[in-house]
Amino acid sequence: MVHPNDQELLATFKNAATKEQGFTSIVKKFQEKLYWHIRRMVIDHEDANDVLQNLFIKVWNGLDNFREASQLYTWLYRIATNECLTFLEQKKRKQVISISDGENGLTNQLKADTNFDAGKLEWKLQLGIQQLPEKQRLVFNLRYYDEMPYDEMSKILDTSAGALKASYHHAAKKIEEYILNN
């Protein structure tokens, strides 16, 4: 499916007569990428759906103030990332459990999946990813799955490209170690 470019989308959105049409096009263009980014962080579909919907409501409210100097998808990823972290933080608080238990919570969610197969490498990889601290998990997912350049990631996570590279390196090593030892 061919989507209009960002400038066209923004122009459509900023025109009061075509605002809804512009918004719908923006959602359609970015929904799947953002959904999977969120889903890999929060694991559960319903949670991912909640986060995604909140994200787009924020987009609707904030897009008029969007500075076109930055890329739309960077801005959207940034909001998505913040929403994910906020959601996970709230979830931990609701469950009144520690950070490490929270991560085990996500691991348990993974294991509860009807398709879960502990013997399969791809599931072990997911379990390995869940052992990482949240920000390292974000870096790994953005690089490994979304194949995002460090420069772009740097704008989303407010961290230098060098630090992100180091973080990805650590993450990959930890995951490898986890898979080989489990």
Binding site: F23, T24, S25, V27, K28, Q31, H45, I57, W60, D113
Partner: peptide, 16 residues
């Protein structure tokens, strides 16, 4: 666990 049917197709409309 899975994405419901028509999820992405209707997302924009639902959010609006």
């Amino acid at each position: 666990r899975d994405v419901p049917a028509g999820y992405f197709e209707n997302l924009a409309g639902n959010i609006l």
